[in-house]
Design a binder for these strands. Structure first.
Lengths: 109, 109
DNA sequence: GTCTTTTATCGTTAATTTACGATGTATAAG
DNA sequence: CTTATACATCGTAAATTAACGATAAAAGAC
């Protein structure tokens, strides 16, 4: 197929969208907040804090894990979830530079 | 009004997820960047800069507009799109406080 | 008036997401 | 070994998203 349009999406745009997609559900925001306020990694008891079935929460955790935002370590019969600080730094950096760009805009309607 | 599961998430979480959802596609990130680098509101010529059909770009613009991130003003036969600085400030503030929370976490795995 | 341009919306298809209950799996407890 | 616990995965249904071409609508050009 012929290339009719010059531009493809670049890696930053794709990664940024991936991050945003991982954050694009209230349940996943809630999960991150739960992990954040906890002093330690949370083994279980995330489901009890959410209005969702266990399998659904597990799915949301998988989405966050796939995006690299959290890690999950099996510890005996439980799995301990934890924020991935490195990825969160990456997110902070990318989001920061995007918002900077948008903030510098002097245009108005 | 029926009580739904979604009602158990708070408004900030829902709004944050809504913002994130609007950013959750490379095309929409690209559109925001195009609007940001332009000195003025862009009337048209967004489609030419993206590898997508005109109707698809129009859909993406609608998503960004619905989330409040951009505005669209009809100007004769054209429509001028522009970043909505107020909403972007709101996004910056919400994203900032979320990332702050996540960054303060001392847990590790 | 008609024609052209610009953009939104319609109609449709394919893919993805969200949700749940049921089931599988691995470990700990007894 | 058997049972219980914790979590992942499967199967599935409903809703949403993304993509496109076709069409509609609105305004300027002629």
């Amino acid at each position: 197929m012929a290339i009719t349009k010059a531009m493809q999406f670049n890696k930053k745009q794709i990664r940024m969208a991936e991050f945003a997609k991982a954050l694009a559900h209230p349940a996943r925001i809630a999960i991150l907040e739960i992990l954040a306020v906890s002093d330690m990694c949370i083994c279980g008891d995330i489901t009890e804090q959410l209005p969702l079935a266990q399998s659904t929460v597990s799915q949301h955790l998988k989405v966050l894990k796939s995006a690299g935002i959290i890690t999950g370590n099996i510890d005996g019969v439980k799995t301990c979830y934890c924020l991935d600080n490195e990825s969160i730094d990456e997110l902070r950096s990318m989001m920061g530079s995007l918002l900077n760009k948008l903030g510098e805009s002097s245009s108005y309607c």
